[in-house]
């Protein structure tokens, strides 16, 4: 089932008076419950593309439909509401709120974005804490846990709202290889358990191989689309 579709996506940035093309006529579709990676060197447009998919930015040209919604048509409030209901985010620097405990960080989107009742909140959080192996750390603050644990909390926070799509921009960049691999495995496990689509960007070749579909970006264009078990030029 198709979750998102990009048609002739272009994104230009103005640097002074010069327009820089970050994405150049991208066309692709992504199905639900897929595990996808965008790879490419620094400056290839991975983050720009993830920002567009995550409704954090709008394309200069073309159409981008996520979960049946043209994301370019959303205003600030609609964009926030759409993200809150459909998209989970995992950041390179974890971006946990330092004043909230592990439990409260996972609870935050349920409480402040979706207004989920207390009982249901607790059930969902405990289930995810268990799933990411952080049950015993629930009362700790982010500065009391390791980087790998922080990213596990971030995964739980991204999944707690039952989003249709989780976007992870370089989720393993600040982790050692072993921890990075564990985080990717965790994301995969979560995909299997919750049937959520995961899209992550990385330039770590060892991690890339974990994705089921790999898009390679170079200079704002998709140069390659690789599916496990096959290799297609994009």
């Amino acid at each position: 089932m198709e979750l998102m579709k990009a048609t002739n996506i272009v994104k230009d940035y103005m640097v002074g008076e010069v327009a820089i093309r970050a994405l150049d006529r991208l066309n692709f579709t992504i199905d639900s419950a897929s595990f996808i990676s965008f790879v490419g060197p620094s400056g290839s447009g991975k983050t720009t593309l993830l920002n567009l998919i995550g409704c954090l930015d709008k394309p200069t040209e073309g159409t981008l439909t996520v979960a049946g919604t043209d994301v370019a048509s959303l205003d600030r409030r609609q964009g926030a509401a759409f993200r809150g209901a459909n998209i989970g985010f995992i950041f390179q620097d974890f971006n946990l709120l330092p004043v909230l405990t592990v439990y409260e960080n996972i609870e935050y989107p349920l409480l402040m974005v979706q207004n989920v009742p207390a009982k249901e909140r607790e059930e969902r959080i405990m289930k995810l804490l268990d799933a990411v192996g952080m049950l015993e750390q629930e009362g700790k603050y982010p500065d009391q846990i390791s980087g790998g644990q922080k990213q596990r909390v971030a995964v739980a926070r991204a999944l707690v709202t039952n989003p249709r799509l989780v976007l992870a921009d370089e989720p393993t960049a600040n982790l050692d290889h072993k921890t990075a691999y564990m985080v990717i495995e965790l994301m995969k496990k979560m995909r299997d358990e919750f049937r959520t689509t995961f899209i992550f960007s990385t330039h770590d070749q060892k991690i890339v191989g974990e994705a089921e579909i790999i898009y390679t970006l170079e200079d704002g264009q998709i140069t390659e689309r690789e599916e496990k078990g096959g290799n297609n030029r994009g």
Binding site: A81, F82, R83, F89, L97, Y108, P109, V113
Partner: peptide, 11 residues
Amino acid sequence: EIGTIAAIGTM
């Protein structure tokens, strides 16, 4: 932090 909470859908 503001960017984070805005990204995850805080109005």
